[in-house]
Design a protein around this nucleic acid. Structure first.
Length: 484
RNA sequence: GGCGACGUACCCAAGUGGCUAAGGGGGAGGUCUGCAAAACCUUUAUGCAGCGGUUCGAAUCCGCUCGUCGCCUCCA
């Protein structure tokens, strides 16, 4: 049984979708007004892994991820740059998809834009007016939260507390300062759509109500996003959705924690952010994923190069082991010898259960990674015992398969070691070519065969200063990229 | 001011009532090696911010104190 922490109840609950084995999942994407930073990456990766795991466990998942392409910030940016809001939205949407692709985040099944759903939003707003939940003031439509007694149930707030916060905007025309806009009349020079209330544009929250309703229905299983969306975005979305449909909007609310820098939330406004592009210029995408998954998704993660480097070492451990396994399968003799075979077989038989146990418990990828590294160690230990024969080959192959399968859920360990090292050469900006490298290695091999250790060591040291590590094996020398 | 989260070794990080407190990094010692590297082995928290309490039993539940952070305005 999968257990998920539900923001609504504040507890872990058994995960039972509304329709057996089918999951509807809506995750808030981005507002396309600027490039994405690592915080956006975390949210995207977390929900990508949740989706992959649910599919791995046999659920059919319909994943919807929206793009907000009309909004105050986009308008501001367009005005600043003297271009249309469409151009701004298009540019940053493209950047977003490029970043996500490089990060290895899979595409959602449905990726709706707000501006393609104006009609649905108008219908939703009209429905809310008809039901008495919304009112019109000079073309601005507001949701009246006093008509929705459950308001605040997601973020655990009440009206008094919110009023006391004194940070809500004061618009004398609104019946309550807490009422929020469903539809905004357009000011001079702003983009607009025709509506029953005049020219205007949608409010921030209404797109998610209209689009989730269209693609997943009035009630669905998972709604996700960063923890900063809980209030006001998801609270407002929930209010309008349930007021409109009269049904429970979402069964499980899932929110990921923040990335911090010096303990403070990484954010645009604080300016303490690293863009995805900047990070991918210095680290392999798999390293970024491993780094982000090594902490439980609800906890904050402190950004640090040290931690990213450690993640790099971890990934390298896997690919180094794959190389070892390759050597073993090629060179191991036919004589049946396998010390500790039974013990190793036993370890393997327990692995999948442990991995699932971790992921079942609110998608605990950090614990799952722990089990993966444990198995990696056991595999290396078995190889250290110098086994040989078909039985040993079989079990080593099986072990590697288990690691790759678990890795596929976390979207790590899916490449060949050569691809990993090529990527590292790029990311670490090593100027040597593979050809030049092989030439040096062969020269050094001659020196070694002449037992000219001093010269051979000099070559090795030269390469090391360029970030290349040489490993002498019985049948030759292997190069790797220095990690960490 | 209101609401909430967190504080586990040198660093990162799982664990939320019961075997010896996962895993990774780093340190120390060792095996292997021409020397290295990699890998493996041993070691590195009688203790989980502090103080009380509940319990046969608590890092884990409850209370208080200290510290850090988040949301209450756009925010992944």
């Amino acid at each position: 049984m999968i257990r998920v922490y539900n923001t609504m109840s504040g507890e872990k609950e058994d995960f039972i979708p509304l329709v057996s084995k089918k999951v509807g999942m809506y995750v808030c994407g981005i507002t396309a007004y600027d490039v994405c930073h690592l915080g956006h990456a975390r949210s995207a990766i977390v929900f990508d892994i949740i989706k992959r795991y649910l599919r791995n466990r046999g659920f059919t998942v319909t994943h919807v991820r929206n793009i907000t392409d009309i909004d105050d910030k986009i308008i501001a940016r367009a005005n600043k740059e003297g271009v249309s809001t469409e151009e701004i939205a298009k540019k940053y949407t493209e950047e977003y998809y490029r970043d996500m692709e490089r990060l290895g985040v899979s595409r959602a099944d449905i990726e709706p834009n707000a501006t393609d759903h104006i009609k649905e939003m108008i219908e939703t707003v009209q429905g809310l007016i008809d039901k008495g939940y919304a009112y019109n003031i000079e073309g601005d439509i507001y949701f009246e939260i006093s008509k929705f007694p459950d308001y605040g149930k997601l973020s655990n707030r009440n009206m008094e507390g919110l009023m006391a916060g004194a940070r809500v905007d004061v618009d004398a025309r609104k019946r309550s300062p807490l009422d929020f806009a469903l539809w905004k009349s357009s000011k001079e020079g702003e983009p607009w759509w025709e509506s029953p209330w005049g020219k205007g544009r949608p409010g921030w929250h209404i797109e998610c109500t209209a689009m989730s309703n269209k693609y997943l229905g009035e009630s669905f299983d998972i709604h996700g996003g960063g923890a900063d969306l809980i209030f006001p975005h998801h609270e407002n979305e929930l209010a309008q959705s349930e007021a409109y449909s009269g049904k429970t909007f979402v069964k499980y609310w899932i929110h990921n924690g923040f990335i911090t820098v010096d303990k403070e939330k990484m954010s645009k406004s604080l300016g303490n952010f690293f863009t995805i592009k900047e990070i991918l210029d210095r680290y392999d995408p798999e390293v970024v994923r491993c780094f982000l998954l090594s902490t439980h998704y609800r906890n904050p993660i402190e950004f640090s190069d040290k931690q990213l480097n450690e993640a790099e070492v971890s990934i390298d451990r896997y690919y180094s082991t794959v190389l070892r396994v390759g050597d073993f399968l090629e060179t191991a003799g036919g004589k049946e010898k396998a010390e500790g075979l039974e013990e190793f077989e036993n370890t393997l038989s327990l692995f999948t259960g442990k991995f699932r146990g971790a992921m079942d418990d609110d998608f605990n990828s950090a614990l799952a990674l722990g089990h993966i590294f444990e198995l990696l160690k056991e595999l290396n230990r078995f190889l250290d015992s110098k086994p040989s024969g078909s039985k040993a080959k079989e079990i080593v192959t099986k072990a590697q398969g288990l690691l790759a399968e678990a890795g596929s859920v976390l979207n790590i360990f899916q490449r060949k070691p050569e691809e990993w090292y090529r990527s590292l050469i790029k990311v670490k900006k090593i100027s040597l070519t593979e050809e030049g490298l092989l030439k040096k290695i062969s020269e050094r091999q001659d020196l070694r065969s002449k037992k000219d250790w001093a010269s051979a060591d000099r070559v090795r040291n030269e390469l090391q200063s360029e970030g290349i590590i040489l490993e002498d094996k019985q049948d030759g020398t292997r190069w790797k990229v220095q990690v960490g």
